[in-house]
Amino acid sequence: MDTQVMNIIEQTANLEHANIPDETVGDVYVDRPRMTARNVNVFYGDKKAIDNVTLDIAEKQVISFIGPSGCGKSTFLRCLNRMNDTIDICRIEGEIAMDGKNIYAPDVDVVPLRARVGMVFQKPNPFPKSIYDNVAYGPRIHGIATNRAELDDIVESSLERAGLWNEVKDRLLQPGTGLSGGQQQRLCIARTIAVSPEVILMDEPCSALDPIATARIEELIAELSSEFTIVIVTHSMQQAARVSQRTAYFHLGKLVEVGDTEMVFTKPQHEMTNNYITGRFG
């Protein structure tokens, strides 16, 4: 964990030298926001990793975060379900609200928050348990299923939604770590949706996968967007263009530009966004 923190800190460039305007360009606000972030600053120790980000996340839509590595997109994502709490030196200012309630308010419990805002990680990380137990883990700890039959239903429907059911239905009791990389990542998605979240955060979910498995996950994201609000961090602009309706471009901890994906990729309003999507740096 310490090395992980160090990596994050090292990647976080010193914001003092950034030559970026204070105002975010584009449509920060939306009509039906599921989550709202207002003036969010994040610090690792003394280092500022996120600088004054304001952004709405629209309901049942896919929004993607893009930007060069170390730009803070993953850090901002991890703020949305308070995963940064597990890092001791991380400190957050500003407000991130869900249903009008600041999730960083002192009386908010992270446990139900994370049940509502699920997360899928960069590397597939199934538990060293059976496929069934992997998916059933969340419903079990939260007591979401009232009986065994209901739990079976949840596992089956989650695996179906993750497009994995047909591949694993005959070997539910085998270890989840025995699946291929792409299957493992879909298992992790099934595990996340098994607790019926409202928002799913995905942190570069395809970066460890081959192109075929990536295509499969992208298809899945498209399907899931009808039921869930999805936030995806990606280092691939093509992926962002394929799967998301909105795109946010981060640079050195600042949110430079946000808007409809088509607009951002075809008519970027900010010069830096333009430079990035045309491949001048990143």
Partner: peptide, 27 residues
């Protein structure tokens, strides 16, 4: 891919059930 056949437990119901067990889990 076919459409999902089963309904999931709705987020609202799930959230309610999560809330029920919370005190015991805190303890």
């Amino acid at each position: 891919m076919t459409d999902p056949r089963r309904d999931m437990i709705s987020p609202a119901v799930a959230a309610e059930r999560v809330a029920t067990g919370l005190a015991a889990r805190r303890n």
